[in-house]
Amino acid sequence: MKKGEYPRARVDCLTRKFGDELLVYDQQRSVGHCLNPTAAAAWRLSDGKKNPSELARMMTQQLSAPVNESVVLLAIEELSQARLLVESEKPARRTSRREAIRAIGIAGAIALPLVTSLVAPTPARAASCRANGQPCVSNAQCCSGKCGTGGHCNA
């Protein structure tokens, strides 16, 4: 059995459903991911016991639309890049978005798997910054990103 052929989703992430999409928060890396319905289905079904063709069959049932193996491989690729699978290695078989589009046809009934990621901010980054001339103790406090040696934000 080649590594990556039986993808396994990480179980140490927090998840919340938003309609058919899934928001996954990786606490280890402080990164949030939005999985579209196709990527979400692939991730939920990746238990380390199913190969891509089995995943394709189950996703077809779940999404009520034909899902072929190219789409599954693309989903695994996206999930792997987002580090949402236990295996950190790239899957043995790879596919591109172009191949997946060709496989499902232009008028495919499902959306291609998509994972969007954003880094969670530190509290300092998420709050308002300080103006030039205001006192500071670290670069992160300043709008300009520069806390001068005199303890003031500068340009």
């Binding site: 938003f18 309609g19 999409e21 928001l23 606490q27 402080s30 949030g32 991911h33 939005c34 901010p121």
Partner: peptide
């Protein structure tokens, strides 16, 4: 934006998501 994408943007502007993610 889809609701999931929008929620992701809100997460990226939350002050305490690192300390209180759940």
């Amino acid at each position: 934006l889809s609701r999931g994408q929008g929620a992701l943007e809100l997460m990226a502007n939350s002050i305490a998501v690192r300390s209180e993610p759940d």
